[in-house]
């Protein structure tokens, strides 16, 4: 009797210790939310800079209506379905509508959603929202972006719930996901090494590609739990949504090796490849967004893509 009780107590004790350790780990490794004071320290947000980041980060590609053009790209009523191997995500309404959007959120709430993957009630977001990349936003840029969202038109649209398979439907499991993949070490070492020696131009390109541009979310392959395979950074991946693949964009001979920086910058602006091919699919939206950036920023992205390690693409699966 007492033995059983003792054993039970030990188990409970161990569990508490384990939970405590996990919590300590979580706090130590996962970037923690910004405080309202840190956000307020930015002072008066620069809404024009926010608009620029909005284009760079491609928020409209998911949060506006599918295929929306021009002014409609600023109506962020959500409702698109993202069909993935984990299930179907319904992209939420992030327009300033008080009832169905995020009109009641404070700036710090928006900043923490985008740059920390954390909802106002503290729960974690699914990585279908590419916040692991957005977490690399400078705080000032994140605040400006949040302030810009508040200037956009309110759209009344109640979006339904995600339909995800078990265990992906358990939001609490995302604490574990964040511990594994959303941490302070989530840049590949060679690419981290770029940060030591980079010219200002490459550093700027790195910020755009790894941060707001979230290029790795499509071009880097994922493991079974949806985390990025950093050893194959930008080396091409299965498309997360729909069929087909996303190409290798490292300076590998079969990828961007033969492209000059100028070729890359032109592609990002117009969609034309050096051999006269024209962009299609998910990259079309990216090009529509990047064409709004300055020429200097597109050249910075090109310089970074020429500076990263070349990686052989994975063997192509043949079409059935």
């Amino acid at each position: 009797m007492t033995l059983v009780r003792k054993a039970a107590l030990t188990v409970v004790g161990l569990a508490v210790v384990a939970l405590g350790a996990a919590a300590a780990f979580y706090l130590a490794f996962v970037p923690q939310p910004y405080s309202a004071d840190e956000v307020a320290a930015r002072g008066e947000p620069d809404v024009n800079n926010g608009a620029y980041l909005f284009a760079m980060a491609g928020c409209a590609s998911c949060h506006a209506e599918k295929g929306a053009k021009a002014g409609d790209r600023l109506k962020l009523g959500g409702g698109q379905s993202l069909v993935t191997p984990f299930g179907t995500f319904r992209v939420p309404n992030i327009s300033p509508d008080a009832a169905t959007g995020i009109g009641r959120w404070r700036l710090v709430d928006i900043v923490n959603a985008v740059a920390r993957g954390q909802a106002p009630d503290g729960s974690p977001y699914y990585p279908a929202f590419p916040y692991a990349s957005y977490s690399r936003l400078k705080l000032a840029d994140a605040v400006d972006l949040a302030a810009y969202l508040k200037t956009l038109p309110a759209v009344s649209n109640q979006v339904g719930a995600h339909t995800l398979a078990f265990p992906f439907n358990l939001r609490a499991a995302l604490f574990g996901w964040k511990l594994l993949y959303f941490n302070r070490f989530s840049a590949p070492s060679e690419i981290a090494a770029l940060a030591q020696s980079p010219s200002d131009v490459i550093a700027r390109g790195r910020y755009i590609v790894e941060g707001p541009g979230h290029c790795g979310e499509c071009h880097t392959p994922r493991g079974p739990l949806g985390g990025p395979d950093l050893a194959r950074w930008l080396a091409g991946a299965a498309a997360l949504e729909g069929t087909g693949r996303v190409p290798d964009i490292t300076p590998e001979p079969h990828a961007l090796g033969p492209w000059s920086p100028d070729d890359i910058a032109t592609y990002l602006e117009t969609g034309f490849t050096p051999d006269g091919d024209v962009v299609g699919g998910a990259m079309s939206e990216v090009v529509a967004n990047l064409s709004q950036l300055t020429e200097a920023d597109r050249r910075a992205v090109a310089a970074y893509l020429k500076a990263i390690p070349a990686i052989q693409p994975a063997p192509k699966p043949t079409k059935p």
Binding site: G244, R245, P247, V278, G281
Partner: peptide, 17 residues
């Protein structure tokens, strides 16, 4: 021309890989 190429490739061509 580019607009016409793009709108067909968007919907009727598999991603380049």
């Amino acid at each position: 021309l580019g607009g016409a190429c793009k709108s067909c490739h968007d919907t009727y061509r598999e991603n380049k890989s």
